[in-house]
Design a binder for these strands. Structure first.
Length: 454
DNA sequence: CACTGGAGCCAC
DNA sequence: AAACGTGGCTCCAGTG
């Protein structure tokens, strides 16, 4: 694909996304207003409770008129200076860090309450109120941009529809229940499965990466290798921890010193055990690994530490398991050093100063989104051509959200599946792997989705 | 009062 | 040498 192709994709994408913006998402205003009121009331109650605590009294004594319950700076001073808690880590500017991890680690009644308050404030200030502010009639018309992101990925604002909570089911339900289908319709969400990894397979032609992401289970494999387990001993939680803490971290360019800490802390945080209930700390100890290690960038890893073990796992991951993909990434780096810019497979050129990790990721991130964008354009054109009542209402990097009349659901799913998994592969010859999609639907709201098997 | 950088947290 | 990629948004604290 060349720069003309890239231009056409951008142009047609902009036109199509303008239509998506005009369609908008339907909002349940009575639910939203009720939830805003209830959340505000919960925040007020929680604040009153916290004001009765010893910590807040210390804070008021120190700051007087300027006391602010939600100030992390003030709370950090109270906790670390006045109450003698030890800081766990520092921010970029050298101040003691006070994020969720640290507050949970301190673990007093006050810090737990403060965290609950912060969650509710986030839900209200970042999601509920901004959605309410932007609703017109009963529709929300968020913006979807294509020209602002370094990698030529998409973007959304006013409000941002690409970061509505979902991983925390409580937070997710609170907000997503406000998004509902039009009368007589269903919300249908189509997600590409492991889209970025599939693009990496297509571009590198790494046979092991391709096998692992279609037939194998690399997350389970890596959990077993990192925690020295048999594959049958890998629990769901251990797999999940390795997926985020090792596989994806390594793909994005993280290294063993940090990965070792993530995986080690994950044992505690996610309560990782063997299927017999033996803590993975004990399990590793029985295999000669007694501690994490210093994980100091200036020092070599010491044999017998978890850090040293993960260094070996990382080495095998890149130099044996995915050596073909590794070689491709190195060739991308050499190319950037030679040229001073990179041309990605969909025809876009990225200029400017880039880090090593940026160069490697730009080759994947943009093209992955372009697969989604091409499908979205094609789908929208087909919907118009067939005079269907389905409306595309959003896009989230690797997923398309639509609002579809019940009588059209089967047709929509057939069409969508054909476009995303067949037509795209014919249109772009660099896609040498098969793509799969996951479809979820709901007739109630954006939270209560159920999977459709295809 | 407007603006800005830092810190934090939400998503993929 | 460097060290988790891409965003949006909010609140705080400091500046002019």
């Amino acid at each position: 694909m060349n720069r003309i192709d890239a231009y056409h994709l951008l142009h047609r994408g902009a036109v199509t996304l303008a239509e998506v913006e005009a369609n908008g998402m339907r909002i349940d205003l009575s639910y939203l207003d009720k939830t805003i009121e209830e959340t505000a009331a919960r925040i007020k109650r929680l604040e009153e409770n916290l004001r009765g605590c010893e910590e807040y009294k210390l804070q008021r004594r120190r700051y007087g008129q300027g006391v602010n319950l939600t100030s992390r700076d003030q709370l950090a001073t109270i906790l670390f200076n006045d109450m003698g808690f030890e800081p766990l880590s520092q921010t970029a500017t050298g101040k003691p860090q006070l994020d969720e991890t640290v507050l949970e680690h301190i673990g007093t009644k006050y810090t737990k309450g403060f965290l609950r308050l912060e969650k509710l404030n986030k839900a209200l200030s970042t999601y509920l109120l901004p959605v309410r502010r932007e609703v017109e009639g009963e529709f929300l018309h968020a913006f979807f941009g294509l020209h602002l992101v370094q990698t030529y990925r998409g973007q959304s604002d006013s409000p941002n529809l690409t970061n509505i909570p979902i991983r925390d089911p409580i937070q997710g339900e609170l907000i997503r229940r406000a998004f509902i289908p039009r009368v007589g319709n269903a919300i249908i969400e189509t997600d590409y499965k492991a889209l970025e990894v599939m693009v990496a397979c297509a571009l590198s032609k790494d046979p092991k990466l391709t096998y692992d992401s279609t037939e194998g289970d690399m997350h389970e494999d890596m959990a077993a290798e990192c925690y020295l387990l048999e594959k049958a001993q890998v629990t769901k939680q251990a797999r999940q921890t390795a997926k985020g803490g090792f596989v994806f971290a390594e793909f994005y360019g993280d290294w063993y010193k940090q990965v070792a800490q993530n995986l080690w802390n994950g044992i505690d945080r996610n309560k990782l055990t063997t299927p017999d209930g033996v803590s993975l700390f004990e399990h590793l100890k029985a295999r000669g690994i007694t501690g994490l290690g210093e994980c100091n960038p200036k020092k070599d890893a010491v044999k017998g530490t978890f850090e040293y073990h993960i260094k070996g796992v990382e080495d095998r991951f890149w130099n044996k398991r995915f050596k073909v993909y590794h070689a491709k990434r190195l060739s991308w780096l050499e190319e950037y050093k030679r040229q001073g810019y990179i041309d990605i497979v969909t025809g876009f050129r990225c200029n400017g100063l880039m880090s090593k990790n940026q160069v490697m990721n730009y080759h994947i991130q943009g093209p992955a989104f372009h697969c989604l964008l091409w499908s979205l354009i094609e789908l929208q054109n087909e919907i118009r051509r067939r005079r269907m009542g389905a409306k595309i209402t959003g896009q989230i990097h690797d997923c398309i959200v639509a609002d579809v009349p019940l009588g059209e659901v089967d047709d929509y799913i057939d069409l969508m599946t054909e476009i995303t998994t067949k037509r795209l592969l014919k249109a772009w010859d660099w896609i040498t792997v098969t793509f799969r999609v996951e479809i979820e639907t709901s007739v109630t709201n954006w939270h209560e989705k159920s999977a459709i098997l295809t």
